[in-house]
Amino acid sequence: MTEAPLLTVEDLNVVFQTARGPVHAVRGVSFELGRERLGIVGESGSGKSQTGRAILRLSAANGRVSAKRMEFDGIDLMTTSEKQMRDIRGARISMIMQDPRYSLNPVMTVGEQIAEAYLIHADATRAEARERALEMLATVQIRDPETVYNLYPHQVSGGMGQRVMIAMMLIPEPDLMIADEPTSALDVTVQMQVLALLDDMVRERGMGLILISHDLNLVASFCDRVLVMYGGRVMEVLEAGQLQKAQHAYTRGLLNCIPELDHHQDVLPVLERDPAWLTE
């Protein structure tokens, strides 16, 4: 890619001050993102979600974020005022969280929530916002948008709730989408449809996508590039389709311990962690 990257992250560090001393959640992460699909994969505690949150400056209050450079489309995210950040969040960089049950407002219909997301970022009337929200529900493959528009979050299934979330995040047409485990709570067939939707946004609207997930096989089959994280560090960067050529012992260990449908092993190899991974 010859054009300037959409997002540049250089030497990102996130440290949390806790009662038991500082916890270094992200340690020197660097990457560039164009209008492409970048995956960040790791186990719990690897720092993958904290990397995503730091980009949007959504780290918890006891977290300290530092970076040599964190730039989005010419904007320095490290020095931007909180007011400017509020204009960027949602409109230009958006984030899909894992669990729709905690991310949706329980006392507002899902349709109104999507329309509200549009009204905040666009100069439109309520009727226009409603129209756009209905269109968006259809885009995320909801069969009966008119009915679903008037449902409350507790009345929709997990898969439908996640599609509602995605509709809400896509409606302002952001340039960059950070999706944190967007499909982990979903059935495999629904997961596939949700990913296809995100795929369309990248291909058709030139959106940049960061997909954060614990599922190495899924991310590798979907993304153009994959960062493998462990203990807050990037262990390895893999190009699409190169998963089987992974070099790092951590990546290889992760791949080996996943049971596979096409061949049976009596005992699954267990991942042996090398303390050197955190220092080398």
Binding site: E43, S44, H214, L216, G253, L254, C257, I258, P259, V267, L268, P269, V270, L271
Partner: peptide, 10 residues
């Protein structure tokens, strides 16, 4: 996590 899953399955 998958590494822990492998241990529990074993």
């Amino acid at each position: 996590d998958v590494s822990v899953q492998a241990e529990i399955l074993n």
